[in-house]
């Protein structure tokens, strides 16, 4: 579906089901240079579980209009406005990589809007190699290739896939190619510049789950464990053998963890 935020058209997937009043919202936040197509194996599954799913392209990403937003804080403000536009008073945030930083900042700015957070392949800080930023600015397709190379684990490099017939590597390269030429470099600079993660993580009051990958070269599990250690109410899982792109590399394990976490939240809410 499409909706306007700050005068720009936002493309988002609702997982194939129209939002219904009274259902809990789950908002997926994609990582650097990616878009809503990071979540095809979560968005439909949770929508048909009964959640109002929001998997949006950030501005300048995928099919969403506007220039890419600079700064994690600005991106978090935009995501909160998207919740406003969709009439979502509160949502569970599921952030992959940079999306986790955005979730942290959303919780810091508007804790009442954040029911819970699931960090996937994320950390409190995501330092970025300056050479990669430079490459993203000057030779974006080479930067996409490097990102995809590092973002996927050994099985994905061998084109093993739970989705019959699909290639992680070439799917991801095409997803990245669809965005504004400045999307990746803007995202990487936003991650590199963001320093508020630890403070935001320490301030989290909502339930949190961290899903990490043992073969993650982008945000190593060690950094994810450090994030989990900062949070009062946090459960942590490390998926062995997966690379950074857990939602598509290991959708079955990720979805089982998501469903169990959401079920506990719903049970607590009902109690």
């Amino acid at each position: 579906m499409k909706i306007g935020v700050d005068g720009n058209e936002v493309h988002l997937s609702t997982g194939g089901r129209t939002h219904e009043a009274g259902r809990p919202f789950v908002m997926f936040l994609h990582g650097s240079g990616f878009d809503r197509h990071s979540w095809p194996l979560q968005s439909r599954a949770l929508a048909y579980d009964g959640y109002n799913v929001i998997a949006a392209d950030m501005p300048g990403h995928g099919l969403s209009a506007g220039a890419p937003l600079a700064g994690i804080e600005t991106q978090a403000e935009w995501a909160l406005k998207l919740l406003d536009a969709l009439g979502a008073p509160q949502a569970v945030l599921v952030g992959h990589s940079q999306g986790g930083l955005i979730a942290l900042e959303m919780a810091k700015k508007a804790p009442q809007r954040v029911r819970a957070i699931v960090f996937i392949g994320s950390a409190a800080a995501i330092p970025v190699n300056p050479q990669l930023i430079e490459q993203a600015e000057n030779d974006r397709f080479a930067a996409y290739a490097n990102m995809v190379d590092w973002a996927y684990g050994p099985d994905a490099h061998m084109h093993e896939n739970t989705w019959p017939g699909a290639s992680h590597i070439h799917y991801a390269l095409q997803v990245m190619s669809m965005s504004d030429p400045l999307a990746l470099s803007t995202d990487l600079k936003s991650c590199a510049a963001y320093s508020g993660g630890e403070e935001a993580a320490r301030g989290l009051k909502c339930p949190v789950m961290c899903i990490l990958a043992s073969q993650d070269k982008m945000t190593p599990a060690k950094a994810g464990k450090a994030l989990a250690g900062l949070i009062a109410d946090c459960e942590m899982h490390v998926i062995a053998g997966s690379g950074h792109t857990l939602p598509t590399e290991r959708p079955r394990e990720v979805n089982a963890l998501l469903r169990a976490f959401l079920s506990r939240l719903d049970a607590q809410a009902a109690a």
Partner: peptide, 12 residues
């Protein structure tokens, strides 16, 4: 299918 996608550089 995945082998052919990989060899051709296709998404699927």
């Amino acid at each position: 299918e995945q082998r052919l996608a990989a060899m051709e550089g296709g998404a699927a």
